[in-house]
Design a protein around this nucleic acid. Sequence first.
RNA 1: GCCCUGGUGGUGUAGGGGCUAUCAUGUGGGCCUGUCGAGCCCGCGACUCGGGUUCAAAUCCCGGCCAGGGCGCCA
Length: 442
Amino acid sequence: MNNLQGLLKDWRRTNYASQCDAEIAGSDVTIMGWVHEIRDFGGIMFVIIRDVTGRVQITAPSKKVGEEILEELRELRKESVVAIKGTAQEAPKAPNGVEILPKEVKILNLANQPLPMDPTEKVKAGIDTRLDSRFLDIRKENVSAIFKIKGQMFHTIRDFFYDNGFYEINTPKLVASATEGGTELFPITYFEKEAFLGQSPQLYKQMMMASGMDKVFEIGQIFRAEEHDTLRHLNEAVSIDAEASFADDEDVMKILNDMIIQVLKDVNENCADELDILGHEIEVPSGDFPVVTYDEAIDIVNSKDVEMEWGEDLSREAEKALGDTMGGFYFLTRWPSEIKPFYVMPVDGDEKYSHAFDLMYNNLELSSGATRVHQYDLLVKQIEERGLNPAGFGSYLKAFEYGMPPHAGWGVGADRLTMVLTGSENIRECVLFPRDRHRLTP
RNA sequence: GCCCUGGUGGUGUAGGGGCUAUCAUGUGGGCCUGUCGAGCCCGCGACUCGGGUUCAAAUCCCGGCCAGGGCGCCA
């Protein structure tokens, strides 16, 4: 007739599915959600409606509901969006002990058939198929559980930072310089100039230390054009970055330690249902995470018959060997200066070591941090030593010439931390619309 | 980028020179008054692409693309 079908008009939801239990028996409710399953027995029909909170059963016995209601229910297809007005009644045979006897049915939007994947998971789809139809995939409670937990994680982290005197900032993701060295950047066209997508807020948050803002944090996207193809790398990730003035590595490790503990506690407390759905348990370590130095790590790795020489970064095999020994969360400290970036502070009197640290969980690197160099001359020297050109760092270096305080900070991979919180083995599971070497859509 | 493995209905799979291509789920229709992985009946729907070998290729070979796993890369 026209395109304006399925309008809400004056219909509004009165109860979420999870709010339908024996307590509400006898009352009239309006349910809105997706058709999870339909079981039509001819004389009685069951329709399971799902919303963000769970599921509720609509029961339509032909003896008790009108023929026109049954006709409308028979038009439904899986995953269609409906609103149903009805009366809740106790029913020991129904899930949750309650079911809704429908009085009015409003089809808000029919779903085409067949579906590109099965959200009820009778036949499990592969990750690629799932990501191609991610919105449908997220309708599954074991998928949305991951993002509910991730949301709690961000909530706790923001609360933690605000409670500890950090100011939330945003730094540019469109950057001019490709001279930071190291990782590959994505080049883009910026009007008549070349520009890049930011790989890290590192230089900006350091410049903020010269602004007098004292302690800042940022939660934002980072972009890395590396052609890696693993379960723990993406080309677009979310980084949780913190930087604090008048602080050193020990101070910010303590902050990181406390923040992680708080996240673990809050997720345990507020996401018990989601953890249950995922079949995952979180153990909250008591007190401070163990610390292992780089030199000790080499000994551990070597003792497991994995080769590693001083001055090398940990190979994947070395990470696994170390993770097997340490287990859980632990800090890896006192890294060689030569394999750390120019902005990392060397150890006074023993310059081949640095004040850099990583936070690990088993064999997964979650965070890197350090005391930073705040002295202009040392910074220039370290930039040059790494074969980089100080001229490319003009606006960054300028901040070190007019009163830069000693400072330290770290960055945490938010998506990797989510893997730990949810027990996911593929980082793609922990990002709504992941960007990897091969995937740019949806 | 390298190595290994793979690509068969919408989804997940079996098969592995000659088939009408297996099964499940789904989907369309029918029966059915307590399902909750409902059941039963009927129908629908597929061999990644390009080249080669062969009387014959979904099957063997080469290449592309894509995927899974591992590694490398990841200041």
